[in-house]
Design a protein around this nucleic acid. Structure first.
Lengths: 99, 99
DNA sequence: TGGCTATTTGGCATAATTGGCAAATACGCT
DNA sequence: AGCGTATTTGCCAATTATGCCAAATAGCCA
């Protein structure tokens, strides 16, 4: 039951999202696609780090990419993941306030 | 921006959910509260492992617990986290099918 | 071809997660 | 108090994640 691939796969997707920079990236991709260099200016990290975050999200099936000239543009594949954000923010407010 | 506590806190919540056993637990708690021993029968793990998973979820503000006799019952604090499940399952189907 | 920019990959050190066992704690019961 | 059940905690080894640097790759343009 618990070992069904359903939960393993869900965990892969959620683990991919479970990082501050990657959540930020998803929110940035909400409006429109962005290239790596644009995201790197917003995130204060090495470009290689940003690139790796993007490949984590892509491997999880959350985003996809297209190449235009020598830039790579990423966009949300399933915008529905953003629907969970408001709830997660609410849950976050409970942190360390419960016994 | 990316370093705002908003994303850090969201990541804490999502990281707490990002484990097959913990996702399973959340689904079990959907209908009604359960004690640790009930969950342990469903999950094939040591009871201490199950207890630790539960405390991860509780520390993230997702579930809460009450003691009744010598048992501890856990229940969902924010059932809204389950709303994300269907989307995450859909996203999971994209895994390794995108370039 | 060579130079330039954009992106990805490999390597590596550090940090965090995971799960089992044993020990400790909590609680009811006699 | 002493016993049995339920749960948590401490410890530890193995695995996985993170982020930077340097090097490699890709594509444009002169």
């Amino acid at each position: 039951m618990v070992n069904s691939s359903k939960y393993i796969q869900m965990a892969l997707v959620m683990k991919a999202m479970a990082h501050p920079s990657r959540l930020f990236i998803l929110e940035m991709l909400k409006e429109k696609e962005h290239c790596v260099c644009e995201l790197q200016e917003l995130i204060h990290s090495d470009m290689s780090t940003v690139s790796k975050h993007l490949s984590v999200l892509r491997n999880a099936g959350i985003i996809t990419s297209r190449k235009h000239n020598n830039q790579v543009f990423y966009r949300l594949l399933c915008p529905c993941v953003l629907d969970a954000f408001q709830c997660v923010i609410e849950v976050g407010k409970n942190i360390d306030k419960e016994t």
